[in-house]
Computed example of a mutant assay.
Amino acid sequence: MLRTAQVSTASGYSVQQVRDLERLGVIPPAVRGANDYRSYSSLHVRALAAYRGVAAAIGPVEARRLLVRIWTMDLEEAAAEVGAVHLRLATERGRLLQARDALQAIRADTESSGSDDAMTITELSRALGVRSSALRFWEREGLVAPRRMTSLQIRLYDPASIRALRIVAALRGAGYRIPAVRDILASLDGAEAGEATARVLQQRLDALAQRTLALIEAGADLARVLRSLRSA
């Protein structure tokens, strides 16, 4: 049996963190002796290692919620919960890859066409594959400012606006929220915009790979704890 200080040393968490995580149900409850002292085991060290990996993959708040749930589930349900997290990360990667492919197509199309033609909102909506309402929303959010033609106030997007909105569409497709898209656009400059956006997407892909590896590494500890709890 292990004391709290020993679990702290083995896991890298402080004594108070170990106690707090047990109180929250993130790790299984410790055995209480007649003197009310906690007694842990190597199982708790594994549970803490699992929490660290899952937290690196999906964030500490969601990791706590997940582990609290799965300790009380049967193996089939617990495995499905962990599988859903893997699927979520795979889906996120798929969106990022789609955005990267879309950006590459945008850059190739821009280089080959060399067009200086402007577009109406209907034409641009069709070209980007997004609704006109999305373009209007992006305008209201300050991501682009099309010209207004005549007294009818028809929107007309110049080549610079079109390039910017293509990048917006790629980033939104990758799951970036409006404030993040706005910050990225503000940091871009003309011809370098496409390359800078590609770097942003690659950085996110690299970070996602690290998160996925953390989840894979946590899987062995999760399995060991779950099997031990069910056989107890």
Rank of each mutant, 00 (worst) to 15 (best):
L2Y: 06
L2N: 01
R3P: 03
R3C: 04
T4P: 09
A10W: 10
A10T: 05
A10C: 08
G12I: 09
G12E: 08
S14C: 03
V15G: 07
V18F: 07
V18P: 05
V18I: 06
R19L: 05
D20C: 07
L21G: 00
L24Q: 07
L24F: 02
L24K: 07
V26M: 00
V31C: 05
V31D: 10
N35G: 05
Y37M: 02
Y40D: 08
S41L: 11
L43Q: 15
R46L: 15
A49F: 10
R52C: 01
R52T: 11
A56S: 12
A57G: 05
P60H: 10
P60F: 05
E62A: 12
A63N: 01
A63I: 02
R65D: 12
L67Y: 04
R69V: 11
W71Y: 02
M73L: 14
M73E: 14
E76S: 09
A78H: 03
A79C: 11
A79M: 14
V82H: 04
V85F: 01
V85R: 02
H86N: 07
R88M: 10
T91A: 14
R93K: 08
G94Y: 09
R95Y: 04
L96K: 03
R100N: 08
R100P: 06
D101W: 04
L103H: 00
A105Q: 15
A108E: 03
A108P: 09
A108L: 13
A108W: 00
E111T: 10
S112P: 07
G114V: 05
S115V: 13
S115W: 06
D116N: 14
A118T: 15
A118L: 11
M119E: 13
I121S: 09
T122F: 10
E123G: 10
L124T: 01
A127R: 10
G129K: 02
G129M: 04
G129C: 00
V130T: 05
S132L: 12
S132G: 14
A134Y: 12
F137V: 08
W138T: 00
W138L: 04
W138M: 00
R140S: 12
R140F: 07
E141A: 03
E141V: 02
G142L: 05
V144S: 09
A145H: 13
T150H: 13
L152G: 15
Q153N: 15
L156D: 11
Y157E: 03
D158M: 05
P159V: 06
A160W: 09
A160L: 13
I162Y: 00
I162D: 03
R166F: 00
I167A: 11
A169I: 01
A169F: 02
L171I: 00
A174N: 06
I178Q: 06
R182P: 03
I184W: 08
A186C: 08
A186L: 10
L188H: 12
A191P: 12
E192R: 14
A193G: 06
A193C: 07
G194W: 06
E195H: 11
A196F: 08
V200R: 08
Q202I: 01
Q202G: 03
L205I: 03
A207Q: 10
L208A: 02
A209D: 14
A209T: 12
Q210C: 11
Q210H: 13
R211K: 13
L213M: 09
A214E: 01
L215K: 01
G219H: 15
L222I: 15
A223D: 14
A223V: 15
A223T: 14
R224T: 15
V225A: 07
V225C: 08
V225M: 03
L226P: 03
R227D: 14
S228L: 14
L229M: 13
L229W: 09
L229F: 05
